[in-house]
């Protein structure tokens, strides 16, 4: 059964159809890459699926439940978490707090337990701190843990964003250009992390322009063009597909 499926999604901005009847289905445990030229609708697809924007038409279902138009916070509770194309750090917070924030089920996030400093809050916070430190260490950010995240480099921000999403222990992770603006060494590192997560059973969908890394990493590639599904299949086959070559080189190219 597919874990996440989008069926006939449509989203218009003004007169422009950013996605136009797009249907994509992701199975549990898959590692899927989404590619396509600029303006193909990749980010809009992510935005519709993750509740950041409402699709004009079509449905999104997660684990068999219709979640079309659900808010990002409710999707996060259902196990779908995403990152953003331009890394969005909580710059005015430290690396540690960025990661701790994402912890689910913290009773201390409600007024009364917070005021009473309830035992359940203390207990949970201790677990949260431990887990956050683990993730920070895993992504080799421990020397930066007390820095404000505004002081991090582009690549470090990508790592932090990944650490933060993992705090939620998601079933499905949507990564929007995790390698953009990241140096080759760090790209390799992030790719390794993603592969490990997938091997541990997490379903991952990646939007990426860095085709070399992407094709090596994923089980399946989905290519979008002008808001529609152009081709999907195994990476090698997709990259050799004439329609894909034409889409990337432009329709008029010889």
């Amino acid at each position: 059964m597919s874990l996440l499926s989008a069926d006939g999604l449509v989203k218009e901005f003004g007169g422009l159809r950013a996605i136009d009847g797009l249907s994509v289905s992701i199975d549990e445990g898959e590692l899927v890459g989404v590619m396509g030229p600029n303006g193909a609708g990749k980010s809009t697809f992510f935005n519709c699926v993750s509740g950041v924007i409402q699709p004009d038409d079509g449905t999104v279902s997660l684990n068999g439940t219709d979640v079309t138009g659900d808010a990002p916070e409710s999707l996060a509770h259902r196990g779908l978490v995403r990152t953003f194309q331009n890394t969005r750090e909580l710059e005015t917070m430290t690396v540690r707090d960025n990661v701790r924030l994402a912890a689910p089920d913290q009773p201390g996030e409600r007024t009364l337990p917070a005021l009473l400093r309830s035992g359940s809050m203390q207990e949970r916070e201790e677990a949260v701190r431990e887990r956050a430190d683990e993730l920070i260490e895993m992504f080799e950010l421990d020397h930066l843990a007390d820095e404000y995240s505004s002081n991090l480099s582009g690549g470090q921000r990508k790592l932090l964003e990944l650490a933060r999403t993992l705090m939620l222990d998601p079933d499905i992770l949507l990564l929007d250009e995790p390698f953009a603006g990241v140096n080759p060494t760090l790209t390799g590192e992030i790719a390794d992390h993603v592969r490990d997560l997938n091997n541990d059973g997490m379903t991952v969908v990646i939007i990426e322009h860095e085709l070399e890394t992407l094709t090596e990493l994923v089980d399946r590639l989905v290519v979008l063009q002008q808001g529609q599904l152009l081709v999907e299949g195994e990476p090698e086959a997709v990259l050799e597909d004439e329609r894909v070559i034409e889409a990337y080189l432009g329709g008029d190219a010889e």
């Binding site: 953003f84 969005r88 924030l101 996030e109």
Partner: peptide, 16 residues
């Protein structure tokens, strides 16, 4: 403080 920093990120990690 997370809301002050970036509301969308705060929502996307599950906070209402």
């Amino acid at each position: 403080r997370a809301i002050r920093a970036d509301e969308l990120v705060t929502r996307s990690v599950g906070k209402s």
